[in-house]
């Protein structure tokens, strides 16, 4: 019991964050320049639009050991490419179902809308996500 607790405290999740170039990446940038602090567990991958994210990217992320995947995009109606974020939203529902079917906790995948001016929100999101994933423990597919 003690050992497990120790393991969990030592567990530092690896979280991939796909951020869309126009809104959420700018928001992440703002968090940086405003010196809002957030943990280093997150690896940010910039994509031009959240709609560019293929479901296979997310599944592959989990397949190769990511403990959590975070997707951020523009608020509904604000997408630079008009429809992209709606497409991602639709895929998101499918991916949750797929993860359920596979036996990976669907809570490891998260979708949030971040605008370019929401630096603090971005930082808070990373903190919250990291905390939640820590609670869940490592991805069952994690390679040692």
């Amino acid at each position: 019991m003690e050992e497990a607790k120790l393991e969990q405290r030592q567990f530092e999740p690896v979280i991939l964050a796909f951020c869309c170039n126009w809104c959420s990446y700018a928001g992440a940038d703002l968090a940086g320049t405003s010196r809002f602090e957030y943990p280093t567990n997150v690896r940010i991958i910039r994509v031009m639009c959240s709609g560019r994210i293929d479901p296979t990217f997310i599944l592959s992320a989990f397949r190769w050991g990511a403990d959590g995947v975070l997707i951020t995009g523009c608020h509904p109606g604000d997408c630079h490419y008009v429809q992209g974020n709606y497409m991602m939203e639709r895929r998101f529902a499918f991916l949750k179902e797929a993860m359920n079917q596979l036996g990976i906790e669907p809570e490891r995948l998260r979708l949030e809308w971040i605008s370019a001016g929401e630096g603090e929100k971005f930082a808070a999101l990373i903190r919250d996500t990291t905390q939640r994933i820590k609670q869940m423990g490592p991805n069952p597919l994690k390679t040692a």
């Binding site: 479901p55 599944l59 639709r90 499918f94 597919l141």
Partner: peptide, 30 residues
């Protein structure tokens, strides 16, 4: 072996999301 099974299943899911059938169905509303 549990991990191996899950890995296989996830590989299958990745292949499934590459099929035209599933990709078309995902994009239908557009």
């Amino acid at each position: 072996s549990e991990k191996k099974k899950l890995a296989k299943k996830t590989d299958a899911a990745i292949e499934a999301f590459k099929t035209e059938r599933l990709r078309w169905v995902l994009g239908i509303s557009q």
